[in-house]
Protein backbone atom coordinates (compact mmCIF):
# COMPACT_ATOMS: atom_id res chain seq x y z
CA UNK A 1 0.00 0.00 0.00
CA UNK A 2 2.83 2.36 0.87
CA UNK A 3 4.32 1.57 -2.50
CA UNK A 4 1.08 2.53 -4.22
CA UNK A 5 0.86 5.72 -2.20
CA UNK A 6 4.38 6.71 -3.26
CA UNK A 7 3.52 6.14 -6.91
CA UNK A 8 0.25 7.99 -6.50
CA UNK A 9 2.04 10.96 -4.88
CA UNK A 10 4.37 11.13 -7.87
CA UNK A 11 1.36 10.95 -10.18
CA UNK A 12 -0.45 13.86 -8.50
CA UNK A 13 2.66 16.04 -8.35
CA UNK A 14 3.31 15.33 -12.05
CA UNK A 15 -0.14 16.62 -12.95
CA UNK A 16 0.63 19.99 -11.38
CA UNK A 17 4.10 20.03 -12.87
CA UNK A 18 2.69 19.33 -16.34
CA UNK A 19 0.16 22.14 -16.12
CA UNK A 20 2.74 24.54 -14.69
CA UNK A 21 5.32 23.90 -17.42
CA UNK A 22 2.87 23.98 -20.32
CA UNK A 23 1.11 27.19 -19.35
CA UNK A 24 4.26 29.10 -20.37
CA UNK A 25 4.28 27.81 -23.97
CA UNK A 26 3.32 30.49 -26.55
CA UNK A 27 0.63 29.62 -29.09
CA UNK A 28 3.05 29.68 -32.05
CA UNK A 29 4.73 26.65 -30.50
CA UNK A 30 1.57 24.65 -29.87
CA UNK A 31 2.07 22.35 -32.84
CA UNK A 32 5.65 21.47 -31.82
CA UNK A 33 4.38 21.08 -28.25
CA UNK A 34 1.82 18.52 -29.31
CA UNK A 35 4.47 16.69 -31.28
CA UNK A 36 7.03 16.95 -28.45
CA UNK A 37 4.71 15.54 -25.78
CA UNK A 38 3.83 12.88 -28.33
CA UNK A 39 7.48 11.84 -28.42
CA UNK A 40 7.68 11.77 -24.62
CA UNK A 41 4.90 9.22 -24.20
CA UNK A 42 7.03 6.98 -26.39
CA UNK A 43 8.68 6.08 -23.05
CA UNK A 44 6.15 3.24 -23.07
CA UNK A 45 8.94 1.52 -25.04
CA UNK A 46 10.57 0.84 -21.65
CA UNK A 47 7.45 -1.10 -20.65
CA UNK A 48 7.27 -2.84 -24.03
CA UNK A 49 10.87 -4.00 -23.70
CA UNK A 50 10.13 -5.37 -20.24
CA UNK A 51 7.18 -7.34 -21.63
CA UNK A 52 9.05 -8.79 -24.60
CA UNK A 53 12.18 -9.56 -22.58
CA UNK A 54 10.26 -11.61 -20.04
CA UNK A 55 7.80 -13.20 -22.50
CA UNK A 56 7.67 -16.99 -22.09
CA UNK A 57 4.67 -17.88 -24.25
CA UNK A 58 4.01 -17.33 -27.93
CA UNK A 59 1.07 -15.04 -27.18
CA UNK A 60 3.18 -12.81 -24.97
CA UNK A 61 6.00 -12.81 -27.52
CA UNK A 62 3.63 -11.67 -30.28
CA UNK A 63 2.11 -8.96 -28.09
CA UNK A 64 5.52 -7.84 -26.85
CA UNK A 65 6.93 -7.77 -30.37
CA UNK A 66 4.08 -5.62 -31.66
CA UNK A 67 4.32 -3.33 -28.64
CA UNK A 68 8.06 -2.78 -29.17
CA UNK A 69 7.56 -2.04 -32.89
CA UNK A 70 4.77 0.47 -32.20
CA UNK A 71 6.57 2.13 -29.28
CA UNK A 72 9.80 2.45 -31.28
CA UNK A 73 7.83 4.12 -34.07
CA UNK A 74 6.36 6.50 -31.49
CA UNK A 75 9.76 7.47 -30.04
CA UNK A 76 11.58 7.86 -33.35
CA UNK A 77 8.74 9.56 -35.20
CA UNK A 78 7.95 11.88 -32.33
CA UNK A 79 11.43 13.25 -31.82
CA UNK A 80 12.37 13.48 -35.52
CA UNK A 81 9.16 15.27 -36.51
CA UNK A 82 9.47 17.70 -33.59
CA UNK A 83 13.07 18.44 -34.46
CA UNK A 84 12.17 19.14 -38.09
CA UNK A 85 9.43 21.54 -37.04
CA UNK A 86 11.62 23.39 -34.57
CA UNK A 87 14.40 23.69 -37.14
CA UNK A 88 12.11 26.14 -38.95
CA UNK A 89 12.17 28.49 -36.00
CA UNK A 90 15.93 28.53 -35.61
CA UNK A 91 18.39 31.19 -36.81
CA UNK A 92 15.78 33.13 -38.73
CA UNK A 93 17.98 36.05 -39.78
CA UNK A 94 20.90 33.94 -40.95
CA UNK A 95 18.81 31.45 -42.88
CA UNK A 96 16.84 34.30 -44.40
CA UNK A 97 19.78 35.94 -46.05
CA UNK A 98 21.16 32.76 -47.49
CA UNK A 99 17.81 31.59 -48.84
CA UNK A 100 17.11 35.03 -50.26
CA UNK A 101 20.29 34.76 -52.30
CA UNK A 102 19.33 31.31 -53.48
CA UNK A 103 15.82 32.44 -54.36
CA UNK A 104 17.07 35.47 -56.28
CA UNK A 105 19.39 33.38 -58.43
CA UNK A 106 16.64 30.85 -58.99
CA UNK A 107 14.25 33.53 -60.19
CA UNK A 108 16.74 35.03 -62.66
CA UNK A 109 18.61 32.07 -64.14
CA UNK A 110 19.88 34.00 -67.23
CA UNK A 111 22.02 36.17 -64.96
CA UNK A 112 24.08 33.25 -63.75
CA UNK A 113 26.06 32.34 -66.88
CA UNK A 114 27.05 36.01 -67.22
CA UNK A 115 28.68 35.92 -63.80
Amino acid sequence: MTDFLTLFTIFVLSIFLGIEVISKVPSILHTPLMSGTNAIHGIILVGAIAILASADTTTLRVIGFLAVVLATLNVIGGFVVTDRMLEMFKGRGQRGRRDQGAAASAVTPPAEPAQ
Binding site: I10, S14, G18, V21, I22, H41, I43
Partner: peptide, 11 residues
Protein backbone atom coordinates in the same frame (compact mmCIF):
# COMPACT_ATOMS: atom_id res chain seq x y z
CA UNK B 1 6.37 5.89 -17.08
CA UNK B 2 4.19 7.58 -14.46
CA UNK B 3 6.00 10.93 -14.61
CA UNK B 4 6.26 11.07 -18.42
CA UNK B 5 2.75 9.77 -19.00
CA UNK B 6 1.22 12.17 -16.51
CA UNK B 7 3.17 15.15 -17.87
CA UNK B 8 1.77 14.38 -21.31
CA UNK B 9 -1.71 13.76 -19.93
CA UNK B 10 -1.81 17.02 -17.99
CA UNK B 11 -0.23 19.15 -20.70
Amino acid sequence: LIVAGTLVGAS
